[in-house]
């Protein structure tokens, strides 16, 4: 598909409302950088140690499969910076959750860079970012 600026704009608005997210900003919500900074604190950040699996592009952002894999992690956090509520989900792993893997289905308000963070037992934070295109749904 060819994405012109006009398509992109219609797409973003339509999908925004189509999945039940508002067209107006919620001033009380912290922005994505704040959410990310709060999780990282002053821990050193690495770009290895975590994989974030989501499609490159989806027709609509109603139900997008995401898999986060962070071997050894204590906790993972998923952030969708273009959503009205940036933090989407966080998962704490108990001792039995030996793979430190989680799959879920999320809402996305538009095309964006999804961020996954993992807190490791050695005090570091692993970080992975992936872009996803969210197009308007056709009949398919």
């Amino acid at each position: 598909m060819r994405l012109t600026r006009r398509t992109m704009m219609t797409t973003a608005c339509a999908t925004w409302a189509g999945i039940g997210l508002p067209a107006r900003a919620q001033p009380a919500e912290p922005d994505a950088d704040e959410v990310i900074a709060a999780f990282i604190g002053d821990a050193p950040v690495r770009s290895d140690g975590i994989t974030l699996d989501l499609p490159e592009s989806v027709e609509d952002g109603y139900r997008v499969r995401v898999e986060v894999d962070a071997p050894g992690a204590e906790e993972v956090l998923l952030i969708a910076p273009a959503n009205p509520v940036k933090a989407v989900v966080s998962v704490q792993f108990g001792a039995m959750a030996v793979t430190h893997r989680v799959v879920t289905r999320i809402r996305l308000a538009g095309p964006q860079q999804v961020v996954a963070l993992a807190r490791m037992p050695d005090g570091t934070v692993c970080r992975k970012t992936q872009h996803i295109d969210v197009l308007i749904g056709g009949c398919g």
Binding site: P84, A87, V89, G94, M96, T104, I106
Partner: peptide, 28 residues
């Protein structure tokens, strides 16, 4: 939990889709 021990503890926000789905692993 498994017999009282936490397997995963998930904090969900509105960005989770209708009919929340989670898949994870556990060593038994």
């Amino acid at each position: 939990t498994f017999d009282g021990e936490t397997v995963v503890d998930v904090d969900l926000r509105p960005g989770i889709s209708t009919n929340p789905f989670f898949e994870f692993d556990a060593q038994v």
